[in-house]
Amino acid sequence: MYPSSHYHFENLDFLAQIVKASPLATFITYFEGEIYSTPLPFILKDDTLLAHIDKQNPQASHLSQVPILLHFHLADTYISPQDYSSAQQLPTWNYIKAQVWGKAEILPPTQIVPSLIAQTTSFEGKKENTFILSEDNEKMQRYKNYITAFAVKIEKYEVRLKLSQDKNEADREKALQKMLQNANPNYRELIKNLQMQGIKV
């Protein structure tokens, strides 16, 4: 079976954590014999992903007509055999990623501003001196007519956590430390959550 079952999770909570930690997805469509791809940030609301796209982007004209594929990437790293404690290992690449398949619905013009505010609020987080995007923001009001807000209803998703789960505890810890060397705080928080839920990482 591909991917191996110990790397493959159908857990909406894991998906939500990945989208929150790394919202910039590769937005992929196939239309009239051509593949289109754009990096777009998304937020997850229940089982729906929200985003917006420039109306001049070719994908804006067909996104509601075709299936959607989104690829979220959180973290990855090369694992050398020298990174493990035990001998006779092979090189590999560990990663945390998620793929989402769905159908897009264009939101009405009245939902553009609320959608932009919701996305900005999510991306700003809870840091000090948080920027607040208000409804009467003049620049947003000028530019809202040049974008299309849309929602992707999730039909299927896969969370892939390849974290040396097939290795012994000592090797898993070595691989985890290698990943953490270049990881952002969001990745560390996800690892903590996975460990609390009994996932061997």
Rank of each mutant, 00 (worst) to 15 (best):
T48E: 14
E189W: 12
L49V: 07
N182S: 15
K126M: 11
A21C: 10
P3F: 07
S64R: 03
I106E: 01
D47C: 07
Y187G: 02
R188M: 11
A104N: 00
S85E: 14
I79T: 00
K178W: 01
H8K: 11
M179F: 05
L40C: 03
S115E: 07
P114E: 10
F14E: 11
P58S: 06
L190F: 12
A25L: 09
L12Q: 14
Y36R: 10
E32L: 07
A151F: 03
F123T: 04
S61F: 12
E34M: 14
I112P: 02
I68S: 09
N145W: 08
E34N: 13
Q88T: 01
A175N: 00
A16R: 10
N11Y: 02
P41W: 06
I35S: 04
T110G: 14
S80P: 08
S134I: 12
S5Q: 15
T148A: 09
P185S: 10
W93E: 06
V100Q: 00
S134F: 11
N168M: 10
E189C: 07
P108R: 00
Q195S: 13
I68F: 03
I68W: 05
N184V: 07
P23R: 04
Y84D: 00
S164Q: 01
G102A: 04
L70W: 04
D54A: 13
M1R: 04
K45Q: 10
E155V: 02
P108V: 03
I68V: 15
A118F: 01
L70I: 04
R160S: 12
K126E: 15
A104K: 02
Y146N: 15
H73P: 01
E169H: 11
E158K: 11
P67C: 04
Q119W: 13
N57F: 06
I43G: 08
T130W: 07
V19N: 05
F123C: 09
A75F: 03
K192D: 15
Y2M: 10
E158T: 14
Y146T: 13
I96V: 14
Q197D: 11
T48D: 11
W101P: 06
F27R: 05
L133Q: 06
D171K: 00
A183I: 02
I112E: 04
K103Y: 09
N129V: 08
I79S: 00
F123H: 07
Q56A: 15
T38P: 02
Q89A: 01
Y157F: 14
L70Y: 05
F131I: 06
G125A: 08
L163I: 01
E128D: 12
N186L: 12
P41S: 11
L63S: 08
G125I: 06
D47T: 14
P108E: 04
M179C: 04
P23H: 03
V201F: 09
A170L: 12
K174E: 03
T120M: 09
K178M: 08
L194Q: 11
Q197V: 05
Q99L: 13
S85G: 11
K126H: 14
I132N: 09
